[in-house]
Structures are given as C-alpha cells and as structure tokens.
Amino acid sequence: MLVVVALLAFLVPPPGPVTIDVAGVGGSGCPAGTTNVAMSPDNEAFTVTYSDFLVQGNGSEAKRSCTIALRINHAAGYTYGIAATDYRGFAHLTGKARGVVRNDYWFPGFPTRHSSRTYQAPMSDNWQVTDMPSGVAHGPCKDRKPLTVETELKLTGKGSGSFMTMDSTDSSVSTTFRLSWKRCAE
C-alpha cells in the first residue's frame, strides 16, 4: 500500500497553475495562424488544434508536416514527459495508396520518441491512433527546455483522389498529449 501511495504522489501534477506557450511553429501542415495549443484544466494534458492540416496525393507521393516548440510553465521541482498521444483524422485512400501518420517529440539533448501508423486503401473513414510509448522520457529538472512535437501526414503509392487530414466528422481537429509528471530529486 505504501508503494502505491508513493507512486501516486510521484505522478501528481505540480501545484498551482500550469500554462503553455508556443515558442515556434512551422511546416507545410500548419501555415501561420492555423494551430492552437491549450492546457487541460486538470494540468494532465495539452491539445494541439489544427485548422488546415491536409495532404492530397493526386496519384503520387505527398506529405505535410507541422513542427511546434512548446514551453510548459509549472512550479519548480517537477518535470514532465509524454505518457500517451491521441490523434484523430479522416482518410480517403483509393487504388494502392497508403496513408501514414508519424509523430516525433523530444527535448533538446534527450532521446526522440517516434511513432507511426499506416492505413491501406481502400479506405474512406475516420481514423484514430493512441500512441503509448514503452517508457516515458521526462525532460530535465533544472534547465527547462522546450518540448518539440513534429507530426507528419504522408501518402504513398498510386491512388488518385486520395487525401488524409488531421480532422474528423465532428470538426474536432486536434491531437491530445497526455502528460506524465515527475517530482524532481531535491
């Protein structure tokens, strides 16, 4: 029982408000003014919302990507890592087309976490991916570094009229990053 209590205290978000600032945005999947980032009220996740993240193949390979650098502001004595990521979108894949959703995230000087999911034609439906890394890479405790998130949508193979979006039928165009908080050693 003591181990469970200690583990829960270890994973509890820091006290006080947690805010998030966008340090930079770039890429063909997120032109200026087409992304928004928000922290959840419980400080356990943040959401990146896209309003123009679309890749169209027109019978050939195509890709779009978005790279966002984020600063998460929180009480001293804590650090965080990405525990899981939820992506949603829509894919219309014809012929021999394949759609790939790829995500990388990292703190400068720390290992990069990769995930990807491939969808095959024929497909014309919503897609959803939950990425849960085998281990959480927490950021540094003392020298806070920005978290960089890079997301890519890619079409390969032949399939005229194929496209893929970070989108869904209910217009919820977003990716949710669930955080794993850790108390730093004193």
Rank of each mutant, 00 (worst) to 15 (best):
Y78D: 09
V129Y: 12
F46Y: 01
G81K: 09
R178F: 13
G89K: 12
Y105N: 07
K96E: 15
A76K: 09
V101E: 01
R88H: 04
K96F: 11
Y119R: 02
D104E: 15
T94N: 06
A83M: 04
F46T: 13
S171Y: 14
T148P: 04
T49W: 10
S171E: 15
S180H: 13
G77C: 05
P133E: 12
L179R: 11
M39G: 09
L70I: 13
Y78M: 12
N58H: 10
G95K: 02
S116A: 09
R98P: 03
G99V: 02
R88W: 11
R64E: 09
L70V: 06
H74P: 01
G81C: 11
Y80K: 09
T49I: 00
D131P: 02
D131E: 05
V48T: 07
K145I: 10
N58E: 07
R178T: 10
P140C: 00
D170K: 11
C141V: 15
L147D: 00
M166W: 00
G109W: 02
A45G: 04
T148F: 11
H92Q: 15
T67D: 01
R117W: 02
Q120T: 11
D170H: 07
F177E: 09
P41L: 06
D104N: 14
V37P: 08
Q56T: 11
N103K: 13
F110I: 06
K63P: 03
V129Q: 07
P41W: 02
G81I: 05
G99W: 00
N126V: 01
D42N: 03
S162R: 02
Y78Q: 01
W181H: 15
D143F: 12
G89P: 04
F163R: 00
W106M: 08
L155D: 05
S115Y: 03
E152V: 07
T156Q: 03
M39I: 04
L147Q: 07
D42W: 08
R113F: 05
F107Q: 10
T35G: 05
W181C: 06
Y105K: 00
T47A: 08
F90H: 11
S171V: 05
R88C: 00
Y50K: 05
S171L: 14
N36E: 12
A83C: 00
T34Q: 00
P146E: 01
P146V: 13
L147S: 05
I82E: 12
N73Y: 11
E150Y: 01
S171G: 11
F53R: 02
F53K: 13
G59W: 02
V129P: 03
S65C: 10
G159Y: 10
C141L: 12
T79Q: 01
P140G: 14
R113H: 00
D52C: 04
L153N: 10
D86R: 15
K158W: 04
V37C: 04
H114A: 05
S134F: 06
I82H: 05
D86H: 08
V149W: 07
M123C: 07
P111H: 00
